[in-house]
Design a protein around this nucleic acid. Structure first.
Lengths: 259, 259
DNA sequence: CAGTGGTCTAGACCACAGC
DNA sequence: CTGTGGTCTAGACCACTGG
């Protein structure tokens, strides 16, 4: 049997104490989002502490996602974003409804769109992808990448794959490339006679890579949600393979099912 | 319009460079899980760097979840756990099957069980919970907490709530309290004529609290997956409300649905 | 330009593991 | 007891912001 040695509830230390004070003020609402926190040198003299220690205190808040540092300017209380609910229902509303919704826009109404960074190419399928599409390894697949934004902030990295015969030389490829994710890809597929009939999603959470941290503008330890989605047609063949990397703190995934 | 000032791809710095070297050796498999990394003082002389800098390099690996520090002993490559798939199918197999599975146990076969820390009490319902159960705020609900483990390691914190009239004075309460999560709660409910007919799950990912970090033995920036699950009977009334906080790096959530 | 955060240095003290 | 990681100090240089 393994003993459980570690039970440190809260590691003390001056930096932790200073951070705790600011953390309490932030979570209690005394320091509004966007407020500039005391500077490193201010904390240094206020708490009679070394510069490095004061800097570490602010670093702890940044790591918690409570604050963000802007070098040369200051450290600011991070605005807490509402989580946008995402449910599979959004795949069903294939046709875009322009119905003016009364009151505030329904949160699930507009999933992240508006691509900021796009690309499309033909790439050889690696093993996993080949298995999904029932193609030999290395066979060409159509690949499309995008960075989706929501409410002006980057929200999700997207890599989708399609069978080349579904697109090559058809209007579908052009439609997918030209629309800046204004329409959901499912709508485009359906409009070309390839309406998905079933979707499977696999979700996992992890800490972001460096590239993801900058592209999604993640602060400190904020995790990403990685979703692998496979859409299949009525015959069970894969129509689309998508790998989505969400800024985890901005969304909420909903699923329901009968037993 | 806000400009986009930050585009730092990779912050240099000696600590980052030293960490990068070790990180590459770990991810490439040259340093096997469980291996002891060079000590702070060894790195200090190897790279002709201050002690603090060497220490920060190891700290970066710990923050990435690639290594774990054991004060007084050393810093070790963290074993990478396989992710256990979790799918709603596990709710359907109400009766426990003892069928000897040939070969290695199917990964989805045994969701986390074996409670290590339990409690049961009657608590007043706060607003959200009251709404779920259609009870007045403050009405008593039956609350049950547990720490589920999987493969010997803590996996999931669990708080479940039930309507008191479903349990008070019945054998159900005793059954729920006495079985150390050996049976899934749904099996116990079904055995008492309260078989769930539908389940809704809401998933979100975030960084853990300090308490969760110690209870789930999370390293560095590893996130948690928080799941809010509501099970309803055939009449639509809530039978169970569960809040689960998973060690996010050890599981994989699967969902599928038809359109 | 003055002020900001980020990082490194050399040295020190502490609590702890494990022999 | 020696070696370990964790933390703090006082001082320094850098790149950056913003008036």
């Amino acid at each position: 049997m393994e003993a459980m040695p570690d039970a440190r509830i809260v590691p003390d230390g001056r930096a932790q104490q200073i951070a705790a004070g600011l953390r309490a003020a932030i979570t209690a609402g005394r320091l509004a989002p966007g407020t500039r926190l005391p500077s490193v040198r201010q904390l240094q003299v206020q708490h009679h502490v070394a510069r490095e220690t004061a800097s570490r205190a602010l670093g702890l808040l940044v790591a918690d996602g409570l604050a963000m540092a802007r070098p040369g300017s200051g450290t600011y209380v991070r605005p807490r974003a509402e989580r946008l609910p995402l449910s599979p229902d959004r795949y069903s509303r294939v046709s875009r409804q322009e119905a003016a919704s009364p009151g505030p826009p329904a949160p699930n109404d507009r999933p992240p769109r508006a691509a900021g960074f796009r690309g499309a190419r033909t790439a050889p399928a690696e093993t996993h992808l080949a298995a999904v599409f029932a193609l030999p390894v290395g066979a060409p697949v159509y690949e499309r990448t995008a960075l989706l934004t929501h409410q002006g902030a980057p929200a999700c990295l997207l890599i989708t794959h399609y069978r080349p015969e579904h697109l090559a030389g058809t209007a579908l490829a052009a439609a997918l490339e030209n629309n800046g994710e204004r329409e959901h890809a499912f709508e485009v597929l359906a409009a070309h006679g390839l309406a998905p009939a079933a979707v499977t999603e696999q979700l996992l959470t992890r800490s972001p890579t460096d590239a993801e941290r900058t592209l999604l503008q993640l602060a400190g330890a904020e995790p990403v949600m990685e979703v692998c989605r496979i859409a299949r047609g009525h015959n069970g063949h894969a129509l689309e393979h998508a790998r989505l990397v969400y800024a985890g703190h901005r969304f909420l995934w909903s699923y329901s099912h009968r037993l």
